[in-house]
């Protein structure tokens, strides 16, 4: 990806990148609403040049899951 994963997430979720870890999820992060979920998909697709299947997107429950999806699509990224 052109940018670092945590930079993208921090910007959308409006938290600092230091606060981000695998357990960050909609349950513990109020800014992770359905709109920002779409934003994350859009920005990650753009940054990686990959399109994700909806099923994979819907399976994401936390940041750890995002990494699994990126791995599944063989997207190289840095945190």
């Amino acid at each position: 990806m052109q940018e670092k994963l945590y930079d993208i997430l921090a910007k959308i979720l409006e938290i600092s990148r230091e606060e981000i870890n695998d357990n960050i999820s909609p349950e513990n992060t109020p800014t992770w609403d359905s709109f920002n979920a779409v934003m994350m998909v859009a920005e990650l697709e753009k940054s990686s040049g990959t399109k994700f299947d909806m099923a994979d997107v819907m399976a994401v429950k936390n940041v750890g899951d995002i990494k699994k999806v990126l791995d599944k699509y063989k997207v190289k990224y840095e945190c």
Binding site: S34, V38, V41, A42, K51, M54, V57
Partner: peptide, 14 residues
Amino acid sequence: DKYFFMADMKLSPE
């Protein structure tokens, strides 16, 4: 279509 079926968001946020 993806965002439409995900979030009734027809126009991509981009």
